[in-house]
C-alpha cells in the first residue's frame, strides 16, 4: 500500500444536469498526508468528496481509492458528513451512533450487523480518543453542536479507517471546540491520512501539508505558499479573514 497513493484522481469532470461543477481535476493524495480542501460555497467541494466516496460517478476521467474503484474501497474511509439529516428526536445514544461505524464487516455477524465485544471496545476507544467517553450513554440529540461533531468523528475513526475524510468539521463549532478538534486531528494524522473540507482557512493552515483549492478547477498549493493573493484568486474577491493565528496576511491588493 505504501507506494500507491490513497487517492488518485485523473482528468475528472463532473456536471449536474449540464452545469459543470468540476473540470479536469487531477489530485493525488499519498498515505499519511494531511490535505485540506477549500473553496467557496458551490465551488464543488462536497461534489468532489462524493466522487471520492463513489456516491457519484465522474462524467469523465478516473478515480482510484487505494488503487480500486471507490465503491469497492470506501470501507477503508472514515467519513464525517457535513449534514446528518437525522430526526432531532431520533432515539439513539452516543454509543449507538459510534457503533454504526463498525458496520460493513464480513461473516455472519457482519451480514446481520451484530456488534461484538471488539466492536464495543473500538467504539469506546474512539470516544476516548475524542474525549467523549463520559457521554457514551447520553442521547445523541441532547448534545451540543461541537459534541455531536466529535461523536461523528468517533464514528468515522472506529471503522479501522486508513483515511479520514471530514466535510466541514468546524461548521457550527465554537473556537474552543475548534482548537480541540485541531489537536485531535493532528494526533490522528500520525496514524492515517486526513482530508479536511472547510471554508475556514485559518483552521487548516497550521494543520495540513497541502491545500487543495476547489472552485470548479482544482489547484494544489503547499501550505507555505498560501498567501492573500492565492485566497483572492480562489474566492474571486478580497476576503476579510478573522484569524486566531498570524501566519497569513490580510490581503491588501486585488
Amino acid at each position: 500500500m505504501s507506494n500507491q497513493p490513497d487517492i488518485q484522481i485523473r482528468n475528472v469532470s463532473f456536471a449536474y444536469q449540464g452545469t459543470p461543477v468540476l473540470e479536469d481535476v487531477n489530485i493525488s493524495v499519498g498515505a499519511g498526508e494531511s490535505i485540506c480542501m477549500v473553496g467557496p460555497n458551490g465551488g464543488g467541494k462536497t461534489t468532489l468528496v462524493k466522487l471520492i466516496l463513489g456516491l457519484l460517478s465522474p462524467d469523465r476521467g478516473e478515480i482510484r481509492l487505494f488503487g480500486q474503484a471507490p465503491r469497492l474501497a470506501r470501507l477503508h474511509v472514515g467519513y464525517m458528513p457535513q449534514h446528518v439529516r437525522y430526526d432531532p428526536l431520533f432515539p439513539v445514544t452516543v454509543t449507538d451512533v459510534v457503533l454504526s461505524g463498525r458496520l460493513g464487516q464480513g461473516g455472519l455477524g457482519g451480514f446481520f450487523g451484530f456488534y461484538g465485544k471488539a466492536d464495543r471496545r473500538a467504539a469506546r476507544d474512539a470516544l476516548c480518543r475524542l474525549g467523549m467517553e463520559q457521554f457514551a450513554r447520553r442521547p445523541f440529540a441532547a448534545l451540543s453542536g461541537g459534541q455531536r461533531q466529535r461523536v461523528l468523528i468517533a464514528r468515522a475513526i472506529c471503522s479501522q479507517a486508513e483515511l479520514l475524510l471530514l466535510d466541514e468539521p468546524t461548521a457550527n463549532v465554537d473556537m474552543v471546540a475548534e482548537t480541540q478538534l485541531f489537536k485531535i486531528l493532528r494526533e490522528l494524522n500520525r496514524r492515517m491520512t486526513v482530508i479536511v473540507v472547510t471554508h475556514d482557512l485559518g483552521f487548516v493552515s497550521n494543520l495540513v501539508d497541502r491545500v487543495v483549492c476547489v472552485n470548479r478547477k482544482v489547484v494544489t498549493h503547499p501550505t507555505s505558499e498560501l498567501s492573500g493573493r492565492v485566497i483572492c484568486d480562489l474566492y474571486g474577491s478580497d476576503v476579510s479573514m478573522v484569524r486566531h493565528d498570524n501566519i497569513l496576511q490580510e490581503p491588501t491588493d486585488g
Binding site: 456516491l55 470506501r74 474511509v77 458528513p81 451512533v97 454504526s100
Partner: peptide
C-alpha cells in the same frame, strides 16, 4: 443495527 443505521443516516450506512 442495519435498519437503525439506515433510518438514522442513510448515506453513512451506504458507505459502510
Amino acid at each position: 443495527n442495519k435498519l437503525l443505521a439506515v433510518c438514522f443516516d442513510e448515506e453513512f450506512a451506504e458507505l459502510r
